[in-house]
């Protein structure tokens, strides 16, 4: 695949690879809708050049299911807690939650909101996403 020097990772994912789960809410690093993982770290794909992630493992929301199709625990917990509202920020919220739980498997709610604070939800579903994070980390029964 040809990648132009100025091409963003979000553009490559969405328009060249057809991975439209990664959303563009602002395309300028303000909202987090485009969050993906690069070597397990959450990054804004709209503000990352594709060439910057050469040789790094990039995971999008489409890549979280287990090989047998089972949903990732964060995805399952977000369904259980009815975390998404309109859903447009959800992929980004999922990816930030996955990155958080890799780094900190049992965060407090306060730690979770700090870690997720780069992901704006215009619908205001924050409480429900935090519930999802707590459930995914086994702290909510």
């Amino acid at each position: 695949m040809d990648v132009a020097p100025q091409e963003t990772l979000a553009h490559t994912l969405r328009y060249k690879l057809g991975l439209t789960g990664t959303k563009l809410g602002c395309n300028r690093g303000e909202c987090g809708a485009c969050t993906v993982l690069a070597d397990d770290v959450n990054i804004y794909a709209c503000s990352t050049l594709t060439h910057e992630v050469k040789n790094r493992a990039v995971v999008t929301v489409e890549g979280l299911r287990a090989a047998d199709g089972t949903l990732h625990p964060v995805q399952a917990a977000f369904i259980e807690e009815l975390s998404p509202a309109c859903g447009f920020c959800t992929a980004g919220q999922v990816m930030s939650a996955v990155a958080l739980l890799k780094a900190n498997p049992r965060p407090t709610r306060e730690e979770a909101r700090l870690a997720m604070s780069g992901n704006v939800c215009r619908c205001g579903a924050y409480d429900h996403y935090l519930n999802g994070v707590m459930r995914a980390s086994g702290q909510l029964s």
């Binding site: 439209t20 489409e62 995805q75 369904i79 009815l82 998404p84």
Partner: peptide, 21 residues
Amino acid sequence: KDFTPPDVEGKVTGAARYAED
């Protein structure tokens, strides 16, 4: 009663499509 609306899974997996997709 609570239920799982049919579109929730697509929202957490990225399968849900919006106009720009």
